[in-house]
């Protein structure tokens, strides 16, 4: 048997190491962001000093001005907002309907149709990209908001996820509404849909974060700088300012800012939403 004294000492040691590694980890997580912010206020010669200075000589917005003049950020913000908005609306609306039907209704072909959902979920999205791009091009819709939204018109993952949510709601809830004279549609949108708030919020956050970070599809489909998203637009800066890192850092900061602000406001919903959906 250990004495209480040595037990207390080993407990204190464990506590020390836990904090040590957590703080070390936190520093590693924060450092790139801090370095980005510090660099974004330096002049180019200042950024290339050896040994480097930590703080900029003076806080200034010149690099942000240069980033905004080289890249149409107002368009990028607007396009990204619209793409995220429409993708979220489509994912929530269509996935709720299908998720409810797959969970609660009896109809012929249900298993085969749900099989299609599972097949899509297990395939990487890149396998669809060439034909999807050709469809958009054939419709003459390249360089539009529609093109950005196109692959996200339906979300197989959303259907799968909301089906699980509806399955966890007892059948009696729907039956009671049905006996009160609701038809299937009314049962769905007046009674069942309002019960899925948490899951719908999770799907919204998941869809938004995924669409916002996506790079390949917006690059492929919208080549006009004014129709790009924040991600694809930012990627064009690296060719333009290959060694001007202060401007590149200012641009990166502008590109990540909206989602980071939303994240800091809705931390809990973000973490639980993205982790709760189990990702894709």
């Amino acid at each position: 048997m250990k004495s209480t004294d040595s037990l207390r000492r080993s407990y204190a040691m464990a506590k020390f190491f836990t904090y040590f590694f957590l703080i070390l980890g936190a520093i590693i997580m924060v450092f790139p962001f801090a370095w980005m912010i510090l660099t974004s206020s330096k002049t180019v010669p200042e950024s290339m000093l050896i040994p480097p200075t930590i703080f900029p000589a003076k806080w200034m917005l010149d690099n942000f001005k240069e980033a905004v003049t080289s890249l149409p950020f107002s368009h990028l913000y607007w396009n990204t907002t619209l793409m995220v908005f429409f993708r979220v609306i489509c994912a929530v609306l269509f996935s709720s309907m299908a998720g409810y039907a797959f969970a609660k209704l009896k109809f012929r072909g249900k298993n085969i149709l749900f099989g299609l959902v599972l097949v899509q979920m297990s395939l990487p999205s890149q396998i669809f990209i060439i034909p999807q791009y050709q469809m958009v091009a054939k419709m003459g819709m390249a360089n539009t908001i529609f093109a950005l939204v196109f692959p996200g018109l339906v979300s197989a993952f959303g259907v799968f996820f909301l089906r699980q949510t509806y399955m966890s709601i007892p059948d009696e809830v729907g039956e009671a509404a049905y006996l009160d004279g609701c038809n299937q549609w009314q049962t769905f949108y007046k009674v069942m849909f309002p019960l899925t708030g948490t899951s719908v919020a999770a799907l919204t956050i998941f869809t938004a974060v995924f669409a916002y970070g996506d790079l390949m599809w917006p690059l492929v489909v919208n080549s006009d700088l004014k129709m790009m998203t924040l991600s694809s637009g930012l990627s064009t800066l690296k060719g333009q300012f290959s060694t001007n890192f202060p401007v590149l850092m200012a641009g990166s900061l502008l590109a990540m800012l909206p989602m980071v602000v939303l994240y800091l406001i809705f931390q809990r919903q973000f973490v639980e939403g993205i982790a709760g959906t189990g990702g894709k």
Binding site: A26, P32, W35, V209, L215, S235, F245, M259, L262, F270
Partner: peptide, 20 residues
């Protein structure tokens, strides 16, 4: 919150910072 932060940042922006 800190450990989770990179996830909400666009990979394009994250990669740009690490390039530097």
């Amino acid at each position: 919150t800190l450990f989770f932060l990179p996830l909400v940042c666009a990979p394009a922006a994250v990669a740009m910072v690490w390039r530097w």
